[in-house]
Design a binder for these strands. Sequence first.
DNA 1: CGGATGATTGAAATGACTCAAATAAAGTGG
DNA 2: CCACTTTATTTGAGTCATTTCAATCATCCG
Lengths: 238, 238
Amino acid sequence: MSMLTKIRMKCHECPIRHSAVCASCDEDELALLEKIKTYRQYEAGDIILWRGDTLDYVASVVSGVATLGKTLSDGRTQMLGLLLPSDFMGRLGRQHIEFDVTAATDIVLCCFERKKFEQLVLTSPQLSRRLLQMALDELDSAREWMILLGRKTAREKIATFLHMLLKRRQITPADVEVKLPLPINREQIADYLGLTLETVSRQMTRLKSDGLIDIIDRKTLLVPSPELLKNASGDEDE
Amino acid sequence: MSMLTKIRMKCHECPIRHSAVCASCDEDELALLEKIKTYRQYEAGDIILWRGDTLDYVASVVSGVATLGKTLSDGRTQMLGLLLPSDFMGRLGRQHIEFDVTAATDIVLCCFERKKFEQLVLTSPQLSRRLLQMALDELDSAREWMILLGRKTAREKIATFLHMLLKRRQITPADVEVKLPLPINREQIADYLGLTLETVSRQMTRLKSDGLIDIIDRKTLLVPSPELLKNASGDEDE
DNA sequence: CGGATGATTGAAATGACTCAAATAAAGTGG
DNA sequence: CCACTTTATTTGAGTCATTTCAATCATCCG
């Protein structure tokens, strides 16, 4: 991990001010958070936390992408979540982390010392309510992913993944061509979807030849119609 | 759903008093809960909630087993969780439920009117903390299941499932023969593990011929050594 | 006993995997 | 800026685990 320019930022100017764990905090609570926060940066590929590490900090992703994963003893790896800007990492009331956290791209974290943060949660109903809400949201997406892992075909998995990225990026009209940057490589996609990287590659070229996506380069796709992608994802129309 | 004898019970006598959502409530809070609770019973096979139903109640499982599942438009089903005694069902702040909830066995629920319960949560830090803790625990187990669904072999899936049932039932010494009742049938196991019922059946007979389990009848196994089962589950020793 | 439902077993098909090789893109250092 | 190495991705051919479809067996229950 190399040293980069230290970041300082006021919470008011923070890009995730209204979507992160602090979203529903008022000015007073924000001031308290401001006092205990520090920014940290990691470069793509850096391990942020190893499974079993002591959890001295909890953090919000400010910019960049991290992955949450676990590896079985024989090397099989399953990614359990992508941490995108405004996502929260770290579990309250737990000394040790259960998973490996890795920086998929260069990333900036807004870190809070765990003990102090927990203290704050006890006194701030806003914060604890927001935390519960975020945990429940995470639970919902974990369950969505269980359906994907357990029941979807390789093609549906890829389509779901891409459509999910699309949704998380921005609100886009369903029928307009969109450029979609991929934050992770084929192997990581495979680990996220419970596939091999070869299958990921094959299914992506298949989606391409079916006209659902266009591959500009390794890390950039063009999606002519998000709607079509969704239709290929196996989800019922909601 | 047939009418059974109405149940009444004092919270003090409740078998899940110290493990359910009310676990860390004090006497005062308990008294408030007592006022808004009602018991409901369902028979094995009853649908407790359909996806999309209005969520008027939240509830704890007192006895019996329920399943939480979702079905894709073409009929593929994935079970997302087993609700065992002391588990909580219902999501705060949500009008509608996302999943189907089905009684796998005869079941007794301790129900709270959602609105009143949410009111109570706002005023009881004990309750809201416990709720957060339970949500995080559920998140952990959903993630464990993601590893199972994404990366484990059929055999490992069955072994993991059986070992999980064993763990949830009671604290048993790892090397003593245990009787293990199965709360769900082969098809439901298949839906839980992302398999077909034929594969479940085949792998169970294989585990039997390997001496890891003994099949007493459809719904009852004998596990000579939980430790051996764990070894077959693919999890690293923790 | 008979009929229904649940579980097992068999044979064949298949989707995804493994292993291996070929391309493509991204660094690296002169 | 170009050869060279390294890493990421694609493509191919063959294999294998699980599924699918079909039939049999077992168990439960009126």
